[in-house]
């Protein structure tokens, strides 16, 4: 280990990469979650054609490797005339993939909510949309939170795949520097530490969120 290399070369490069990583993770997480909610609701409450289409989407994106999806978006789409920059392809791939997983957790949560909740809301004059927004969604998100949180943590780790389609983020910066200096062990241990930190921070944050949203006796049956 060479401290001067680490502090004067590695860390500045990795910090630059970290920003790109965050620019990949945050939008993908938001779009993915939104997509997951829409798809989850469509699968559960949508008319048959929509529900089937949404399920097919989720099955396809959960059944194939994310890396293949990224290759499809980045290398495959130009074949039918659609050109995406590495960054856009990465965000699109991450959002589509995590949306599919989110929809699974959200669907499970929606199915676990008893029909009496809907009837009670309707008996008070809630419209269909208001019932979903004020009664069903808050309950479903609490139930889905552990799975959804896990998926966000996966997203942090899988954001490293952006490097393979030439979007140079944290892992990419590390790879470039390692290849120049042949200090693979040092570089990737430190890169690993960056991810460990991100993942640990996210876990702590999610646990805090779960505690904050905890409702006595809710989610046990």
């Amino acid at each position: 280990m060479d401290p001067s290399f680490i502090w004067s070369e590695l860390v500045p490069a990795l910090n630059k990469g970290l920003i790109v990583s965050l620019l990949l993770i945050v939008p993908s997480a938001c779009i993915g979650l939104l997509l997951g909610i829409l798809v989850g609701f469509s699968r559960t409450f949508g008319p048959p054609w929509l529900s089937r289409a949404a399920s097919a989407y989720a099955t396809i994106f959960r059944g194939t490797p994310l890396l293949v999806q990224l290759f499809m978006l980045y290398f495959g789409l130009p074949g039918i005339g659609i050109y995406l920059t590495p960054y856009v392809a990465a965000v699109a791939g991450f959002s589509l993939c995590s949306g599919a997983y989110h929809s699974e957790y959200i669907r499970g949560a929606l199915l676990s909510i008893k029909s009496g909740q809907i009837r009670a809301a309707e008996s008070l004059g809630f419209s269909r949309v208001k019932t979903m927004v004020h009664i069903i969604l808050p309950q479903a998100m609490r139930r889905a939170l552990p799975g959804v949180g896990n998926e966000l943590i996966y997203l942090i780790k899988y954001s490293s795949l952006a490097y393979i389609i030439t979007c140079i983020e944290l892992t990419g910066e590390g790879k470039i520097l390692a290849a120049q200096t042949f200090r693979y062990t040092e570089v990737f241990l430190i890169v690993g530490c960056y991810y460990l930190l991100l993942v640990s921070l996210a876990s702590v944050g999610l646990r805090k969120l779960e505690d904050m949203l905890r409702v006595p006796g809710f989610g046990k049956g």
Binding site: K157, T171, G174, K175, A178, Y184, L189, G192
Partner: peptide, 17 residues
């Protein structure tokens, strides 16, 4: 450790490092 580090980074760390 192993749950917090991306597979890609693990590959690089072990294979090249």
């Amino acid at each position: 450790f192993f749950r917090g580090i991306p597979v890609l980074v693990l590959f690089f760390l072990f294979y090249f490092g």
